[in-house]
Amino acid sequence: MQPTVSLIRANSYDLKNLRESLEALLEPLGGMRSFVKKGDRVLLKPNLLTGSRPTKECVTRPEIVYCVVQMVREAGGEPFLGDSPAFGSALGVAKANGYLPLLEELNLPITEFSGKRYQTVSEQFNHLLLSPEAMNADVIINLPKLKSHVQLTMTMGVKNLFGCVPGKMKAWWHTEAGKDSARFGQMLVETARIINPKLTILDGIIGHEGNGPSGGEPRQLGVLAASSDVFALDRAIAEIVNVDPLLVPTLAASMRLGLCSNLAAIDFPLLQPQDLKVLDWRLPDRMMPIDFGLPRVLKSTFKHFYIRFIKEPLAAYSSR
């Protein structure tokens, strides 16, 4: 079946304008009711990378989540938000990035991911751990942020699903598979295939270019994208920002596995990638190794636990 990727121009996070944009974006895909049925438990998986740079557009905007929550509830679904940030808790990162006023208004639950073993579609990754909170949802809606990435060139829909790997297991995978970028990219692709989000909506209104995923700068791009096929969506976005897909390990792996061969295989019912193309998107100044050595794993683990179990609780206590 030919994948469909819906692309539109959108330049505002104003809630009214954004809601209209999202409705227009999903209309060619059948609207939210094509993905969510009455009574479905719906995981919304944004990019909640870090709470340390809240003005740098490192995370999915809360306004995107707000509008999607409304649309899911109108379709009869029961949404909840979940992620496993690199550092700290989902609640702590959401709070640092201005999520709480909107989420409290909507009374939206925030779930912290834990770990459980799931058999993958590939024997070489059969020890992959995924969150049962994610895997037990009836529907997963993937809400990535468009960013450059110092290890993977770009992070889009496929990479965002790595957040369903709980806690510091992500650092372990950097160590286990990170010595070979092709293997690491395939691991991410296999992860996305298992999770199998029903819908991906990419936040590219303001992206994050340069030394991402957190060390770069905001870039007004004016793009929203949606698809039931996360691999096709990522391929389209790489075309928009004029990045060779073979430089992106997740795209190279998905193409090698026959999951998204070329643009001609994708249906674009609204705008075409060339209608949104930019030629000066900034990639990282230099690429960093994917592999995490033992000292880095230990440092990362300490930082994660310090933020989640000391810094965040102290901040919550002092704000009472």
Rank of each mutant, 00 (worst) to 15 (best):
S34C: 02
S34T: 02
V36I: 08
V36C: 05
K37H: 07
K37M: 02
K37Q: 09
K37N: 08
K37T: 05
K37L: 07
K38G: 08
K38C: 05
K38Y: 01
D40C: 02
D40H: 11
V42W: 00
V42L: 03
L43G: 03
L44G: 13
P46H: 12
N47E: 05
N47D: 09
L48N: 10
L48D: 10
L48M: 09
L49I: 10
L49R: 02
L49W: 00
L49F: 11
L49S: 12
L49A: 13
T50C: 11
T50M: 09
T50K: 10
G51V: 02
G51Y: 05
G51I: 03
G51C: 08
S52M: 08
S52R: 09
S52P: 01
R53M: 06
R53D: 01
R53F: 07
P54E: 04
P54L: 04
P54Q: 05
T55A: 04
K56A: 06
K56C: 06
K56H: 04
E57N: 13
V59L: 11
V59T: 12
R61N: 09
R61F: 04
R61M: 04
R61P: 09
E63W: 14
E63N: 15
I64C: 11
I64R: 07
I64A: 11
V65N: 15
Y66H: 12
V68Q: 07
V68D: 04
Q70W: 01
V72K: 01
V72A: 14
R73N: 14
R73M: 11
A75K: 01
G76F: 00
G77Q: 01
E78S: 14
F80M: 07
F80E: 06
F80I: 02
F80D: 09
F80H: 09
F80T: 07
L81D: 10
L81N: 10
L81Q: 07
L81K: 06
L81R: 05
G82M: 03
G82D: 01
D83M: 15
D83G: 15
D83F: 12
D83A: 15
S84G: 15
S84I: 15
S84W: 00
P85R: 11
P85N: 13
P85A: 11
P85Y: 04
A86Q: 00
A86M: 11
F87M: 14
S89W: 04
A90I: 03
A90W: 01
A90Q: 08
A90C: 10
L91F: 13
L91P: 15
L91C: 13
G92H: 06
V93L: 05
A94C: 10
K95T: 05
K95S: 08
A96Y: 02
A96H: 08
N97K: 06
N97L: 03
G98C: 03
G98D: 00
P101M: 07
P101K: 08
P101L: 06
P101S: 06
L103H: 13
E105G: 14
L106N: 06
N107L: 09
N107M: 09
N107T: 10
N107G: 14
L108Y: 11
L108F: 12
P109C: 13
I110L: 12
I110N: 12
